[in-house]
């Protein structure tokens, strides 16, 4: 099978020791990977390196066999990220935020026009619906939304981007059980709503071992090192303790 994303010997230095040390990792299409690890283990750093927003101090990240730094800007659309801090644009409304996901395939005039008069409302609505939001909030200000709504607006933006690989950084953090279920199903592409397409490749960092059975593969990260990389069936209590062991 061909890998879509590959990390080779990736190192990221930090103030106290390496934030990532010598990570080798390949992701093949269709894989659903859970990324486990205690706080500060390097999960967010790994995701930032994987989407190209953080250049590693040594090592290389390959996308489709080419160094990610050589990708043309619009090709980076293929990698979608659900950030832990969501990174919504607080000054804009919901539609404009969702449309921000489409910027890779639109020009500057479109971007400006969207700030004045939200464009492609139909597509936005589809994405909102797919993310489980009411289309009534489409022109609401981001500030007026609740935490769960914000989470799903970020998701709608991701859907609007139509990436081939989704990197999700603790998307289930602080969600109630029903919402957790919903968002998880969505990210795993179990539910399809309307024309919104979700690719099946997913890397998701999380803290809920009980949800592991939804995934094919588990990567355990501790102090910047991969300490577990195996099928999710292999993850037992001992392995879990090993991953979450404190130094």
């Amino acid at each position: 099978m061909t890998q879509i994303l590959e990390l080779r010997g990736v190192k990221v230095y930090g103030y106290r020791g390496d934030r990532l040390s010598n990570i080798d990792l390949t992701i093949t299409p269709g894989e659903r990977i859970a990324l486990l690890g205690s706080n500060g283990a390097g999960k967010s750093t790994l995701i930032a390196v994987a989407n190209g927003s953080l250049t590693p101090d040594s090592g290389i990240v390959l996308w489709g066999g080419r160094p990610i730094t050589h990708l043309r800007q619009h090709q980076r659309q293929a990698i979608g990220t659900l950030w832990q801090d969501l990174r919504l644009l607080e000054e804009l409304n919901v539609a404009q935020n969702v449309n921000a996901g489409a910027l890779s395939s639109r020009n500057l005039m479109w971007a400006i026009a969207n700030l004045l008069y939200p464009l492609e409302i139909k597509a936005c609505k589809e994405c909102l619906k797919a993310a489980g939001l009411s289309t009534k909030i489409i022109f609401a200000n981001i500030r007026e939304l609740s935490g769960g709504q914000r989470q799903r607006v970020a998701l709608a933006r991701l859907l609007r981007q139509r990436p081939e690989l989704i990197l999700a950084d603790e998307p289930l953090f602080s969600l109630d059980p029903i919402l957790t279920e919903e968002i998880l199903n969505l990210l795993l592409a179990r539910t399809t709503r309307g024309p919104v397409v979700i690719h099946k490749t997913l890397l998701m960092s999380m803290h809920q071992p009980d949800l592991i059975h939804h995934f094919d593969r588990v990567i355990g990260l501790r102090s910047g090192c991969v300490v577990f990389d195996n099928s999710s069936d292999e993850l037992d209590a001992k392995a879990l303790a090993w991953i979450y062991q404190s130094e």
């Binding site: 980076r76 990698i79 990220t81 644009l89 000054e91 910027l103 890779s104 971007a111 400006i112 700030l115």
Partner: peptide
């Protein structure tokens, strides 16, 4: 974040820097 999602330099400056 916008850069990583493939948005062009100008658009991502407009949305990601100027907005806030």
């Amino acid at each position: 974040a916008l850069q990583a999602s493939g948005a062009g330099a100008r658009s991502s400056w407009l949305y990601g820097c100027l907005s806030a």
